[in-house]
Design a protein around this nucleic acid. Structure first.
Lengths: 338, 338
DNA sequence: GACTGGCACTTGACCCAGGGGAGTGCCAAC
DNA sequence: GTTGGCACTCCCCTGGGTCAAGTGCCAGTC
């Protein structure tokens, strides 16, 4: 028995099942793919594939459907890249150009990704801890309030208002501004935070209260976990495609995308490559039958955060993978411009 | 036949149907409410209520369910206010205190509202056009880039980066800063935008390119429709409660909450009072069986934006209405502090 | 005139059996 | 290794029959 053909059969089963959503039998398989052998032969291959755990039958007299292991094999060895159509490329481009700020980029990319893949799209906001400080501004407001603005290399702008106990002198502020700049410019945020902490003692004791208040607020902003966890979700309407059984198929996903923590886990570590996690590989037991396609994105060569889609395991992997990496590429480029 | 009792019957039907999700018959009605009459009498009342269009039967031999008109009557005349429990009050309070910025306030309130009502919660970000300018900052960045920061009375901070053709002098910038401040401080954003436009001609012709670039960007920021349309949605998992028929009950809502424009329409105009829109009153044909409870919220006495919930018409109106107005109150207070 | 008990009627929900069809596994033959 | 044939399995659909809930109506009572 030829090993090659057996893999061809697996590929055909995955493709057909993804297309029709129905168990695929030996007869329809030979009809739709020119395999050059009879249904009986295919059946032999099928039992072999089933023995190895790549496919399974919902019930005795039904066709076969791929198992998670089958999908994995498909993704790893059988899928051929499916380049985006020019129309799709153009869609991404027109969607993302015209974004005015980082918020906008994220919102738009989540929309376009959901639309391209017909799945639920997830985009993590550019990570703070992985960016560097591009600019810090300290602005006196009315009274003893001070506005702090941090601009990061990823174009993200964070601001905080600090209520001070006394109104600081202009001189102190400009001094502070200069020293903060010297200490943090170009540094990664976590390091910048450390540098700032060291800085407090270099100031006159009288100024300490003001300096401390400002510097610690900045530090907090730099290491603020919450903003590192920000996530945008889109395409919830595509949950329809998860199947008809609401309770087992749709509800868990709906619940997962409400929980930022779960979502972050799903997206996974921002490794640079495209990652596909199928079924149990998602690390979430309640998400049987769902798969996550994710990748890191970043300005330049630096990974800033992750984005991806979550959909049913019976998804069009080549198309989804192409869309995810294309959007990631464009988002990275778009952020570099901001 | 007593009109009073007939309304009592309607109230009982609404309450039972909301509680059980099943058509309610004359027998169970007299059992669960001490109406003091026999099922047969109730039946007579029921045909009257049905003739007037307040209730209907799914099929000939089933119990009655309220029509949209019935719910409306219930909300308008029959519902008794159901004050929040102390635990619920505390939940709102602890959820909203500790919010670091406006973004955070909105995110948290959408969560708490969804949790309290077990419905889909919608919170519109504080409107820009209805706020006034609290502070504007113009900061020179590296090269010929300039950072513009706008702080509004609602605590919202918008920022834009402008790429200029030439590097402006410090003197020009501080002049600009002063004049912009004078022209816009305390003004509503649309008016501030007009004032800025008038300002350009008061500058030296040589400075015009720089001034124009900065001022028009500010203007755009003030009148940016997109940010006026920003909305947070939460509690999508509660869609479960909309019923079991995915296509007719859940999908339309899912689609609606993906579309900002539709959402904004749903929330409706930011009138000051609590508004309940039932079925067709939502103005959206595909949302049969859903109702929207919304209200304006604001700092001080000024309406800034709207928030609310969308749920099935068979919802617990008194509880939902109480939760929505309570959250609105707290959000308003919380924004005033920021 | 309002209320009540009784009763026939309607109708969806549930259960069960039987036929049809798609697909399989196995086997003997090539 | 491949193929056609064939018996078998099991889901799906349909139809009929029962059941329970609830109604509408009517005659009688207060």
């Amino acid at each position: 028995m030829s090993d090659d053909r057996r893999l061809d059969v697996l590929r055909a089963i995955v493709e057909d099942y993804v297309a029709t959503q129905e168990p695929v039998g030996s007869r329809s398989l030979v009809e739709r793919h020119h395999l050059g052998v009879s249904p009986a032969t295919i059946r032999n291959d099928m039992v072999a594939l089933e023995d190895e755990g790549y496919i399974t039958q919902p019930h005795t007299s039904a066709g076969r459907i791929p198992t998670d292991k089958g999908y994995r094999m498909f993704v790893d060895r059988l899928a051929t890249v499916k380049p985006l159509s020019p129309a799709e490329r153009r869609a991404i481009e027109t969607f993302l150009t015209g974004a005015v700020d980082v918020d906008d980029v994220v919102q738009r990319s989540v929309r376009v990704l959901a639309q391209l893949t017909n799945q639920v799209a997830i985009v993590q906001y550019p990570s703070l801890t992985r960016s560097t400080v591009r600019h810090i501004e300290v602005v006196a407001l009315e009274g003893s309030r001070v506005l702090l603005v941090v601009i990061t290399s990823s174009g993200r702008v964070e601001q905080r208002i600090v209520e001070l106990v006394e109104t600081p002198s202009d001189q102190l502020l400009s001094d502070l501004r200069a020293r903060i700049g010297r200490a943090t410019l170009g540094e990664r945020l976590p390091e910048a935070s450390l540098r700032l902490a060291d800085m407090i003692e270099t100031f006159d004791v009288n100024d300490r209260p003001v300096v401390t208040a400002i510097v610690t607020t900045l530090s907090q902003t730099f290491t603020n976990e919450r903003s590192d966890e920000r996530i945008a979700v889109g395409g919830a309407a595509n949950l329809v495609r998860f199947g008809s059984d609401f309770d087992t198929a749709i509800r868990p996903v709906l619940e997962a995308i409400e929980e930022q923590v779960v979502l972050l886990k799903l997206l996974g570590e921002a490794t640079s490559g495209l990652t596909v996690r199928i079924g149990a590989e998602t690390g979430n037991d309640s998400l049987v039958g769902t798969a996550v396609v994710s990748t890191a994105y970043g300005a330049d060569d630096q990974a800033l955060a992750t984005l991806g889609t979550v959909g049913p395991t019976r998804m069009d992997y080549p198309a989804t993978m192409a869309a995810v990496s294309a959007v990631a590429r464009y988002v990275g480029r778009s952020l570099a411009d901001t």
